[in-house]
Amino acid sequence: RKAAEQTPFSGSVTLQWREASVLRTDQLTVKGTHGTLLAQGQRSAMAIGAERLVYSPADGWQELWPAGLGSPGHPNLDVAYDVRTAGTDHVAGYPTDVVEVLKAGVVRDRLDLEAATKLLLRRRQYDSKGVLERAFTFEQIQIGDLSMAPPTTPPAPKRAGPRRLPFGAVPASEREPSRLAAGYRRLGAYRQGGVVQLVYSDGLYDLSLFQQQGGLDTGDLPAQRRTTRLDGRPAWAFSWPGGEGIVWTAGRTVYTLVGDVPADELTEVAASVSVHPSTSVMHRLRQACRGLVESFTGAF
């Protein structure tokens, strides 16, 4: 991350990601200098310091993460992972040092760092069985051109990002454990409109758990979703170049868990989320009768 902030570069990248058994591919161009990074493809994204923006033709530039919030931080990598060197290679004509990141003895990430600058030129992510989940690879890159102009900053992105919540301000019905399965620790709580976002990390991958009161409109789900089950409940999983997601409901709450993690680990973590089941019909009838009685007696 520090190398990407300090080293000017531009190039073309091939993305790969798995949707169930299908490995999909896309290309984009990337440019980074002076702490600003721009990725352009079917959908563009920009990082300006800690601020994160995304562009779509319909809505223009929108703010995903305000600069003022900063980073939620991360636990130490060595709590859940082991890191080891794994020789050398070449990517886009540059020599690289290869680093492997292991969890429970299984290689989960293989990173190619450019030998001189330590810029990340290739990343390959694997699930717990060693199957490739997603990858990005620079096919062509120019490194270290100090005359490179920074990407043009959007003049007026829509300011719709989340705001930080003290954890005590999170409604009790939407609080989750400070830790989830697979070593994920809660880092912060945020709110955007009626949606509460809890951020978790295991030191390498980040997860966001979104909770919103109300019903689920399946028309809002991604078109390429996959139907699955989570602790006996229907759920919908989906993949995109940057990560995985899963959506499910319990009672009157819609849960969405997303992150740059392998699909099998995301499902494991989702199963550890404490959900709030719907009250029974009889309980709701009793509550209605209680309310009716209290309306006559003046009880509180």
Rank of each mutant, 00 (worst) to 15 (best):
K2F: 07
Q6H: 10
F9D: 11
L15K: 04
L15H: 04
A20W: 07
S21L: 15
T25C: 00
L28D: 11
T33P: 07
T33A: 12
G35F: 08
A39M: 08
Q42K: 12
S44F: 04
M46C: 10
M46I: 00
I48Q: 14
G49T: 02
G49H: 03
G49D: 05
R52M: 14
L53Q: 00
L53C: 01
A58F: 08
G60S: 03
E63T: 14
P66T: 08
G68S: 09
G68M: 06
G70H: 02
G70Q: 03
H74I: 01
N76S: 14
L77S: 06
A80T: 09
G93N: 05
D97S: 09
E100P: 01
E100Y: 06
V101R: 12
L102I: 11
L102Y: 14
V106Q: 11
R108L: 04
L113W: 00
R122S: 12
G130V: 05
G130P: 07
E133V: 09
R134E: 05
A135L: 10
A135T: 10
Q140K: 15
G144L: 15
D145Y: 04
A149N: 13
A149V: 15
P151S: 06
P151C: 10
P151T: 01
P155Y: 15
P155R: 15
A156V: 13
R163K: 07
R163A: 09
L165K: 09
A172G: 08
E176A: 13
A181C: 06
R185H: 04
G188Q: 10
A189H: 05
Y190T: 04
G193P: 03
G194Q: 14
L198H: 06
G203H: 10
D206T: 14
L207S: 07
S208Y: 01
F210N: 12
F210S: 13
Q212N: 15
D217Q: 04
L221T: 00
P222Q: 15
Q224G: 15
R225P: 05
T228N: 05
R229W: 09
G232M: 04
P234A: 03
A235M: 03
A237Y: 12
S239Q: 05
W240G: 09
W248R: 09
V254G: 01
Y255R: 05
L257R: 10
E265Y: 13
E268L: 12
V269M: 00
A271C: 03
H276I: 15
V281K: 00
R286L: 07
R286H: 05
A288V: 10
G291K: 11
V293D: 01
S295W: 09
